[in-house]
Write a protein that binds this DNA or RNA. Structure first.
Lengths: 341, 341
DNA sequence: GCGGGGTGTCGATGCGTATCGACAGCAATG
DNA sequence: CATTGCTGTCGATACGCATCGACACCCCGC
């Protein structure tokens, strides 16, 4: 292993000088800098992470707590991980992974062992028991999701209320008579994630504002069978022709089963009714048929979170704590939207 | 921050005794152990990761290099990450993430900065330039995937050759006359991942063995349009009725577009022809219609990799280096298989 | 009663880096 | 020429833990 001492010896300087060349925290003569940098290059020196962390009290690591719970929407998690990792690397930080099922202890472990300098917590529930713990840690915590009480922590999330409103707005604007929201299945409701309520509220508000017939249906789960049950109920009150029906499907996992169930009933989305999903663009593009969607914007949300995080770490100016940053979803019309009247 | 010194003071012992209580590397009297453990509990002591790594030369961290390259099959990556993280936690290790696009430098960084004790490298190409670098690191590297030259590294992967053979075997056994393999798109071929060749070889071998009509078609990409192009070619030589056609689709991303294209042509998978996909069970279950599939078994592959890894770290007996551990895929019949003749 | 082999604890040291205070050298100032 | 103020470098120290050697103590057996 090559140490800064080896570099110092080769460059004919002291170890501390090597350290100062690397950190730039003291001025160094051009000549010395050159010799040291050359020695670093020659030896391929890389500072030992543990020693650096011990001495500087900074691990240069970001803790990322990911939801791997069964039932969680796993397809959407990867873009978050990807974006967060890349943002971290841009600031010369690494990412350490913790799983949701470690619960609050996972957080204290990351913090108390000085494994990381900050934590990003994904998939935060309305009354997430980890929040009070997170608020008491010695490292800053950024939440992706909005709990009822952020306890002074920063929150970033998609603007689900706006998403719900946009979905119904769009259907109302394209002359639909009736909107049915195929809600979240029981296990998601049980996890009590805040975005569910927010989305529903937005949808309800918009429906009320446009004075459009509106109903909510909850499938037992996101399987094909679950979709069938929900659709039976959704289509039950369906009168004879002439009614333009719009389905709103906020659970990404329910979208494809729903589309398939409709096709099986001879109902073609985009011809006989409209379907708007809430999912990543990638999911929407590859669904069959490609579904009109409101994007979850995982990359934007992640970037916003990382931006706050590094501002905190660099002691730059930062918005007031407990600020909730909401990202605006993007509506993309695809094949499941009825053409204009 | 609570240190082992604080614990020692509270327990009335020396700091080294605290350390020995925690590591168990020297015998401790029951009474002393009790007092120390009580003090640890009272103070909520967690050893500082950096200091521990510095002193013990062990970071208790596993480096995981994930493919985030565009075009890579991202849906399948998450189960790997999940399983590897959980296996690591079971052995009291953490997982640090690196992205593929850091290339070989990412590996040397992880190793030379002593950021981790071992590395798991996913999505290894046939002539992956990272292999020679990986072989020269001071930490063990486990490959997920099989390069042409493993350079003494351990490899774990699905048995793609067997998967190819099983796919065609199944079609032959269920009385199909003709098999068309909708291959990988150009960008995957360009990445030159070894499993592509292995799968094709297995399929070809089986086709030859059963003396069944066999053809390979390469789509330009995995979009709907790409699937259309490939299908045009695949269905071109289609004679009049009576021919039982089987499609084999090894690229998970191509499966849904293919199914949809078939439905659009009025060809119902499972009624007019068979489709066998190579994808995770989860993908197969949620495709429309649910596709008969050979499972990629990401969890099994990950677990096998982690088993080797920890055997190496614990200096337990380990198979010969360069050993390739292959996991057997599992065939699950779903709705896209033609019923028996 | 005395030597010998364990057992359990302690003090000291090292891991590799960051950082603080000290200080030599030099230019500018009076 | 003496003084002040910088600039650039060095030595020493601390970070928190693991580990090594030393050693006090106790239980045997003779």
């Amino acid at each position: 292993m090559v140490t800064s001492r080896d570099v110092a010896r080769l460059a004919g300087v002291s170890q501390s000088t090597v350290s100062y060349v690397m950190s730039g925290r003291r001025s160094i003569s051009p000549e010395t800098r050159r010799r040291v940098e050359e020695a670093i290059e020659t030896l391929g020196f890389q500072p030992n992470a543990g020693a650096r962390a011990l001495a500087s009290q900074r691990s240069q690591v970001i803790g990322l707590v990911v939801p791997f719970a069964p039932g969680a929407d796993m397809t959407g998690v990867l873009p978050f991980i990807e974006t967060i990792t890349k943002c971290a690397r841009e600031e010369d930080h690494n990412v350490i992974l913790a799983t949701e099922d470690e619960g609050a202890e996972g957080l204290t472990r990351l913090s108390d062992q000085s494994l990381c300098d900050a934590i990003v917590l994904m998939e935060v529930g309305s009354k997430d028991p980890r929040i009070p713990v997170a608020a008491g840690l010695s490292v800053p915590v950024i939440l992706i999701g909005v709990p009822d009480d952020p306890a002074g922590l920063y929150c970033v999330d998609l603007d689900y209320t706006l998403a719900g409103r946009m979905a119904v707005d769009e259907l109302a604007a394209s002359a639909h008579d009736r909107v049915v929201l195929l809600g979240y299945p029981r296990d998601v409701l049980a996890r009590d994630v805040n975005f569910v309520r927010r989305f529903l509220r937005g949808a309800e508000e918009s429906a009320a504002a446009h004075d459009i017939a509106y109903a909510e249906v909850s499938p037992p789960d996101t399987s094909r069978a679950g979709a069938e049950v929900a659709l039976d109920e959704a289509l039950a009150g369906r009168g004879p022709g002439g009614c333009r029906l719009g389905l709103v499907v906020p659970d990404p996992q329910l979208i494809q089963p729903t589309l398939q169930s409709l096709l099986d009933r001879g109902l073609v989305p985009g011809r006989d009714l409209s379907v708007i999903g809430l999912c990543t663009d990638r999911t929407a593009e590859t669904s069959t048929p490609p579904v009109t969607n409101l994007s979850l914007e995982p990359r934007d949300v992640s970037r916003r979170a990382m931006r706050i995080l590094f501002r905190l770490l660099n002691r730059e100016s930062v918005p007031t704590p407990s600020t909730v940053e909401l990202v605006t979803p993007r509506l993309t019309l695809r094949q499941t939207s009825l053409p204009a009247h």
